[in-house]
Amino acid sequence: MNPLKNLSVIRKFVQFLSFLFLVYGSSVVGFYAADKLSASLPALACAYDSKTADYCALIVLQHQLDHRVGMVLATGGAVLKALMPTLITLATFFVFMVILSKAFCGWICPLGFFQEIMTLIGQKIGLKSPSSLSDTTVNKLRPMKWFILLGLVFIFPLMTGLGFLGMSSGFGDAFCRICPSRILTTLMIGDPNQLYVDTSSTSLMIWSVMADFLFGLIIAIGLTVRQPFCRICPMLALQTVFKKAGLARLVKNSTEGCSSCGLCAKNCPMDIREIHTQETGDAVHPDCTLCGRCVEFCPRDNQLAIKYAVAPIFTSSKTYCAERTKAQKKWEKGSLIKNTPSLQTES
């Protein structure tokens, strides 16, 4: 298959460029916060990375809730004035979501790209992957991103600002304390200072141990499980709030003729089985990253499509699916250690 026609190859190329830009892009846009494109990026580009080109919305939201909203509420200041920066952040986030919707996860996020690379490495060293996680596991994991968004991104920082939690306890930016992207992106620029165990207080020690452990866990589990952290990522949850406004979307054209192959669900890196059972219409599930693999491996013409507004960008076809499946088999046979193809697809 011509790699230039392979959506996964194109996506990897875009992810690679995005990774370079978001991890090292300060040389292009500038070093200071004022130089960044926004402070509301719907992808995990960390502000602790001194060479980043943009800031993830989550760190900004946490700081605003802690330093501004919480404090103003606690001291009785002008609430609307205090809320304004948060509203601007959310409005900018909304604009981003209109432009690319959840494709920020599947095409832009540095941590998402890193996890995909880990899975590719796993394949290349001959590790076989389960075709998908069990329904029970998926069902247990799905609500976690909402708990993390509400608890770590909103409630804990707000409680810190209100004075219920200590300033030095790490609850003011609770999600950043455990975010693997903070460790990943700083390590990628040669800065080891975010991989640490903090001994200054019990709470900071717990946060730091959780972060380091989670980072190590993701690296290893990512060798056989696709997108392990994305499944609990609060960014995915925050994006879901705005997903209806997105111009980029996954559309299922009709259930007529849809066989029981379920290849769309089996190839979904987020194990969204609903793609298979979904009826006609918008098929963007809260866990969807718009990676397009379901469309690639759908053997039915025009069954699934990625559309931008009403314009189809990529549509499923029998011919493409056959070529893509063949290319996938070839790729997986090329193990660096031994020929142990771990196909996600069915012939």
């Binding site: 590790l127 141990v209 452990f213 190590g216 990512g222 060798l223």
Partner: peptide
């Protein structure tokens, strides 16, 4: 903040992850 400690905990996380990886 101990980098060595961080590395050790990360290695521990990787160890647990590898256990599940090989199980998978």
């Amino acid at each position: 903040q101990s980098f060595q400690g961080g590395l050790l905990v990360m290695a521990l996380g990787m160890g647990v992850g590898l256990f599940f990886t090989f199980k998978n």
